[in-house]
Amino acid sequence: MSDTVVHSGHAAPTSLAERPEHSSDSPLSIHAMTVAYQRKPVLWDVDYDAPANALVAVVGPNGAGKSTLIKAALGLVPRASGLVEFWGEPYKRVRDRVAYVPQRESVDWTFPVSALDVVCMGRYRRVGWLRPVGRAHKKVALECLDRVGLADLAHRQISQLSGGQQQRVFLARALAQEGDLYVMDEPFAGVDAATERAIVALLRELREAGKTAIVVHHDLQTVPEYFDHALLLNMRVVAAGPVNEVFTRENLHKTYGGKLTLLSEAAEAVARSGLKVR
């Protein structure tokens, strides 16, 4: 008996037949991933393939599981079920190519290190066990700090930086990892205008360089301006694809429910950016 592939877009995988392997071009493929805290599921049967060389926004309402999605994909929170692959390989084999920017609150900013020290941490994998961070690595780290506009503050202790500057230090650290995929958890949360501009410029730079960035984002309005792909998430994947295809009234409604002002603002933003709303 031959296995046939049946697709219909809901809950459990719909075919008993094995799915064709996801494309190994995709920097991040998530198959049937379920994550639960205690008994409550946070993510249910998420299937997603991130496109290569794109800026992807992960958007959805509070509690939709945006941060959980990327943390579970990186193995930082346990998955109840599901498989995650990066370029068709398990995470362990391609760690070098994935750079993660956690939320700013995840570390203690009074820790006795300088901004440059933190960025150097992004080089540790290349430095390896036991060896000290050499001059060449420090130089790369300094360049990364320069790219986020903080070269002057390299030797400041990190608690003496503003929130936005701290966020940029984290970005510089991810740059220093020289990965091909950048996974960022709310980099725009609570930052000043200068930092926001710096992050956007950086994202574009990454795209120019052929990299992919997957960014958890909370501001619907700026999605069309900053990103080319979007993943609408609300426990499940509501829609995913190029922003102009995904940002439809129906999809946004499915994701956010009846918060109309928010939706019309987002739709306006799409209109402003010259994309067509279907």
Partner: peptide
């Protein structure tokens, strides 16, 4: 400083 990054980097 950042256990998650340490683990991610293979330490």
């Amino acid at each position: 400083f950042d256990p998650a990054l340490a683990t991610a980097q293979g330490f």
